[in-house]
Simulated scan of single mutants.
Amino acid sequence: LTAVAAAFVPEIMGVGYDTVNQTLLGEFGLLLLCCIAVVKIVVTGISIGLGMPSGLVGPILFIGATVGGVFGLIAEWIMPETASSAGFYAMLGMGAMMGSALQAPLAALLALLELTQNPNIIMPGMLIIVVSSMVASEVFKQQSIFLSILKEQGLDYHNSPVIQALRRVSVGAIMTRQFSPTKRHIVYEEAKEILRQEPKWILINNSDGKPVSLLPTVDLAHYLEENEQELVEGEEHPIKERILIDLFEIPAQRKDIASLYFQATLQETLDRFTETKTEALYVERTSAPTVSRVLGIVTRAEVENYYQYKRK
């Protein structure tokens, strides 16, 4: 993509310092500067969006200089007697682009001062950098480009002691292994067998064997106690005529459930809860592309209790 674009606009190639210098000196025309700026924005956005290991500061200064140069040429055309040189506007464009894209206004202002070695640029530089940074953060709700890239890669830049503690603990440390997997419809004898195992949770699977819901064992015990006579009478009939217990229909506080891989940390577990908006996760380990085994259950309350304990 870069090669195709460079075939028509070769000024976008390389680090771009030569193009920036020519822009500061006002050697480009308005149409050419517009083409250079647009093509550089597109090529840079595509490269970064595809995850290419490319730099950011260089393209930011390049784009800022060319766009600023465009406004400088327009200002010279509209107000030839009062407008400053195109190079001055190009320099301000570099600071504005750096301040808004990096969300680092002070660094952008210091960069302007170092590049020009002229304290007179501080006031116009402050004006344009603050305005551009505020527009990016408040109007378009954009973070620094570095934070945006980390977020897209699923990385968390927060570094509080609690977050560090959650990252060091595996979900296997707090998950419960006291669960019993079963299908949705069971008979009285199967229900009693589940209760004899004394699990904390009953993991309900669909016809394909995939977990779809989580049922507290105590709710099943209450249901059997209240309907024992009816269910026991059903045991006297042949298998086909026995009364089936629908675990999706009995009164219970069932929880929606989603999967979580066994190597996850507690920080990743919290992120998974936020992503799936569920109250519980089943922890599974995949031994083959189509073979996985459920190892345990973790609820949001358990993670939050650990989180609150670490905060104290």
Rank of each mutant, 00 (worst) to 15 (best):
A3T: 15
P10F: 12
M13G: 02
V15P: 02
G16D: 11
D18Y: 04
C34G: 15
C34Q: 12
C35E: 09
T44R: 04
I46W: 12
I48A: 09
I48V: 15
M52W: 10
P53C: 06
P53L: 03
L56P: 02
T66S: 14
G69I: 00
G69E: 02
E76T: 03
E76R: 14
E76C: 03
T82D: 09
A83H: 06
S84E: 12
S84N: 09
S85H: 07
G95F: 03
G95S: 03
A96T: 01
M97N: 12
A107V: 08
L112I: 05
L113E: 08
T116I: 09
N120R: 11
I122Q: 01
I128W: 04
S133H: 10
K141A: 02
I145N: 09
F146V: 14
I149P: 09
G154H: 10
S160A: 10
V162C: 10
I163C: 09
L166S: 07
R167M: 05
S170R: 15
A173K: 14
K183V: 10
R184M: 13
V187F: 13
E189C: 00
E193Y: 05
I194F: 11
L195V: 15
K200Y: 09
K200I: 06
I202L: 06
D208M: 10
L214R: 05
L215S: 07
P216L: 08
P216G: 04
A221G: 07
Y223Q: 08
E225T: 06
L231F: 05
P238L: 14
R242H: 02
L244E: 13
L244H: 01
L247A: 10
A252Y: 13
I257Y: 07
I257R: 07
A258D: 15
L260F: 08
F262G: 00
F262L: 13
T265E: 05
E268K: 13
D271P: 01
R272F: 00
R272W: 00
E275T: 01
T276S: 13
E279T: 12
T286Y: 09
T286H: 13
S287W: 02
A288C: 08
T290H: 11
G296P: 07
V298P: 03
T299R: 04
V303Q: 04
E304R: 07
R311P: 00
K312L: 07
